[in-house]
């Protein structure tokens, strides 16, 4: 309450200022200001969606290039999994402050559930991610030789997510669901108001989290956690076996995890916590003096 009062006071002050202006000047300033704000906001929205598209294209291009494996280009599951985590680091670093760098419809859905994004914007993000992934994988096919895209190790195309032959589809679904639950939990932890001031190493945290999940489940299901990440290689290569589990698993996990986290774990920042932060600072300074 005390924190909110100053804001309301400021608003009242601004209203008074505007009412004091002459009528003609008042109208002119208001209309110009509104027009400018509206245009700026629209432009920002377009830029945001464009950034999300480019970020997803980067994810597909770099991530899948790092998965290329044939007789000439050596690779390993460990290397490609770690590489995917680092790719996410790059994308979040580049566009985290522009559009949040979701890269993933599951994350976008969780953001919507968390009330951090509007429905139209969420849908725009989804389209941008689909288009971006498609472009990214297409770019990869354009710059690499055929033997790098299709090889003995990847007969259906590089970076295709497919089930390990020992898993049943339902087991694959469970794996995708559970690892995406972990991913969404990381996202919700980042968005929690108590972490609002702890954003510095966000790209590193996300990147290493993705690397861990990729290393964990990469050999079982490809560790997609992301419908568009599986959709782009599938559409470019015409390979759709068990494709549905890469949509159902992640999206269900995003919905369930974000709802649970929002109602069970999320907390607003309280005045006492702010005081505690100040107190700890004071104690530190006192210790230094002593």
């Amino acid at each position: 309450m005390p924190v909110q009062q100053p804001q309301s006071a400021e608003i009242g002050h601004q209203m008074k200022m505007s009412s004091e202006e002459p009528p003609s000047g008042k109208q002119t300033c208001r209309s110009q200001s509104n027009c400018w704000l509206l245009q700026r906001r629209q432009l920002d929205s377009i830029t945001t969606v464009l950034a999300e598209m480019i970020a997803t294209a980067m994810l597909m291009f770099l991530g899948c290039m790092g998965s290329v494996e044939n007789s000439v280009f050596t690779n390993s599951d460990f290397q490609s999994a770690l590489n995917f985590g680092f790719v996410v680091l790059i994308c979040i670093q580049c566009f985290g402050c522009v559009c949040g760098a979701h890269l993933n419809p599951a994350v976008t859905l969780a953001t919507y559930v968390y009330n951090m994004i509007s429905l139209p914007m969420a849908l725009a993000y989804f389209v941008a991610q689909m288009v971006g992934a498609f472009i990214g994988y297409g770019l990869l096919k354009a710059v690499l030789p055929e033997s790098a895209i299709y090889s003995a190790e990847n007969p259906n195309g590089v970076c295709l997510t497919s089930l390990n032959s020992t898993l049943t589809p339902w087991q694959g679904l469970a794996v995708e669901f559970l690892i995406t639950c972990v991913l969404i939990s990381v996202c919700c932890g980042v968005w929690d108001p108590r972490n609002a001031t702890k954003q510095d190493s966000l790209p590193v945290r996300f990147g290493l989290a993705i690397a861990c999940l990729s290393l964990t489940a990469g050999q079982l299901t490809g560790a997609s956690m992301n419908p568009v990440r599986s959709f782009a290689p599938a559409i470019w290569n015409g390979f759709w076996d068990d494709h549905w589990i890469y949509w159902v698993g992640p999206m269900a996990a995003a919905l369930i995890t974000s709802v649970i986290y929002k109602h069970a774990f999320r907390r607003e920042l309280e005045e006492s916590e702010v005081d505690e932060t100040t107190m700890s600072t004071k104690r530190t300074s006192e210790a230094e003096l002593a």
């Binding site: 290039m65 290397q79 770690l82 790059i90 670093q93 954003q199």
Partner: peptide, 27 residues
């Protein structure tokens, strides 16, 4: 917008370069 988020820049850049080299180093 990132003016205050500078602590881990070396780590972010380092892992970025690692990623790009792991990605395209063989080509």
């Amino acid at each position: 917008r990132n003016a205050k988020l500078q602590d881990s820049v070396p780590v972010r850049f380092g892992l970025t370069v690692s990623c790009l080299i792991l990605t395209a180093g063989l080509f």
